[in-house]
Design a protein around this nucleic acid. Structure first.
Length: 189
DNA sequence: CGTAAGATGAAG
DNA sequence: TTCATCTTACGG
């Protein structure tokens, strides 16, 4: 994983597919297999770090592995992992997981029994894993979050590349990746 | 200062 | 398809 974080952002976004993303909290362990990601790059108008470093987007400029949690639409949160060197504002958004760990806990947090509805969206997985704003700007190696490499490596033919969800700027850029035929990816796509 | 848009989700 | 909900960025 130390290795993983040294790669370029688009490669990391693809590599992350198949990794297990976990949060170990006092309530218990919860997590799943990453099945959908999006990359946000320098010079990309959809990137929160497109214009200027600010209080909000500062974690994107941190060392690779810095956690970026932000609130969206006044009610949901999304989690990113900063990539590239310090002072380069790039990151990978974790968009969906296939639930594997702490399913019961995630069902309680999400208030639904439906496995398909636990982590099939960036806001959903944040809620299911109990990720909160306090983790913003921490480094993942120094946090309760973990990313664990897959036992069987994902091959290129299993990865689908498309445009990103929910953006208006840079809408034509092919920076979204998900596992082919996986039923836990977020809806519109 | 005022305000519009935003990397969404749930319900109708 | 609509609406809930509120912070941040940007213009005046």
């Amino acid at each position: 994983m130390k290795n993983l974080l040294e790669l370029d952002t688009l490669t990391i976004a693809k590599e992350l597919l198949g990794y297990t993303f976990v949060h170990e909290s006092v309530e218990g362990t919860a997590g799943g297999i990453i099945v959908e990601t999006e990359a946000y790059l320098q010079g990309d108008p959809a990137c929160h770090a497109y214009r200027r470093k600010s209080v909000r987007n500062a974690p994107m400029f941190g060392e690779a592995g810095t956690i970026y949690v932000y609130q969206i639409y006044g009610m949901h949160f999304c989690v990113n992992i900063s990539t590239n060197k310090k002072d380069v504002g790039e990151a990978v958004l974790i968009r969906a997981l296939q639930p594997t760990l702490g399913v019961e806990l995630m069902q309680a947090r999400r208030n639904t029994e439906e496995i398909k509805n636990l982590c099939s969206g960036p806001g959903k997985l944040v809620q299911a894993l109990g990720i909160h704003k306090q983790m913003n700007n921490w480094h993942i190696l120094d946090s309760d979050l973990k990313i664990i490499s897959p036992s069987v490596q994902i091959v290129e033919s299993e990865i689908v590349t498309t445009t990103r969800i929910g953006i208006t700027q840079g809408a034509d850029l092919p920076y979204r990746f998900y596992l082919k035929d996986n039923k836990f990816v977020s809806r519109k796509g």
